[in-house]
């Protein structure tokens, strides 16, 4: 397995990219401005694309260059552009109602990372993999998952929800690139395509929400109960 026997330079490069992606997730968690989320998400996708290429280079997987390039193209350029288009239609630039203050949500996010670390250390120990990169990749994968769910619960704006779901998937993407670089190309391509379709659907729905409910905040979605 690649991640278990890495050259020191490759190990530090992978670690750097993974940690930078995690920090960008915290940037999203700490910001109230929708445009900032989007930029942080785009930057994160670029890092993951670079990571794919790096894994392809060090592991000798030629198809990962393709995956990296397409990740940058789809997640780093097309998706942010689509989201920007949705944002321009809306008159909300930021989250108006805070469930928790920024600092509280950052602290909860830090707690989530610690939890993910504990789980990852146990998991790696059980698998007999002592490599730091493996533990780090697992930690980042699980914590981005948890941070994505935090964003989904703590935020009300439709755009924040879409980005929350994209962060969930970015985490999985990052983890699979490091831990399972051999995943068949076809699956990765279809996943990318699927994401594109999903965001297009979200975009249409956001427009409908605006027309029929007059707001894109989930605080207004309280007609259906019981």
């Amino acid at each position: 397995m690649l991640a278990a026997h890495l050259a020191p330079l490759a190990a530090s490069l992978f670690s750097l990219l993974a940690i930078a992606s995690l920090l960008l997730a915290f940037v999203m968690l700490g910001s109230r401005w929708l445009k900032d989320y989007m930029l942080a998400f785009a930057a994160q996708s670029w890092l993951i694309g670079i990571l794919s290429a790096a894994v392809g280079y060090y592991g000798g997987y030629a198809e990962l260059y393709w995956v990296g390039g397409l990740t940058v193209l789809f997640r780093g350029v097309v998706l942010p552009w689509l989201i920007l288009r949705i944002l321009r239609r809306l008159n909300t630039a930021r989250e108006l109602h805070e469930v928790l203050s920024t600092s509280t949500s950052l602290v909860i996010g830090a707690g989530a990372v610690i939890f993910a670390l504990v789980v990852s250390v146990r998991l790696a120990a059980e698998l007999g993999l002592a490599s730091n990169v493996v533990v780090l990749a697992l930690t980042v994968m699980f914590s981005m998952k948890l941070i994505g769910f935090l964003m989904l619960t703590l935020r009300h704006e439709a755009i924040s929800h879409i980005l929350g779901i994209l962060v969930l998937e970015n985490g999985i993407f990052l983890g699979t690139q490091i831990l399972m670089p051999g995943m068949p190309l076809m699956i990765e391509l279809v996943l990318l395509f699927d994401l594109l379709v999903a965001v297009a659907c979200f975009g249409v729905l956001v427009r409908y929400l605006l027309t029929h409910i007059g707001s894109t905040s989930s605080r207004e979605l309280r007609r259906l109960t019981g």
Binding site: M141, K145, G148, F149, L152, A158, H161, G164, I165, L168, E169, I172, A198, C201, F202, L205, Y208, L209, H212, I213, S218, L221, R223, L224
Partner: peptide
């Protein structure tokens, strides 16, 4: 209408985030 839009939005958000766990 407002109700069906609310239902559609909840549907896609809850199910998409839920099955992202299945992807993991």
């Amino acid at each position: 209408n407002a109700e069906s839009m609310e239902a559609a939005w909840k549907y896609i958000i809850v199910v998409s985030s839920g099955i992202s766990l299945a992807l993991l």
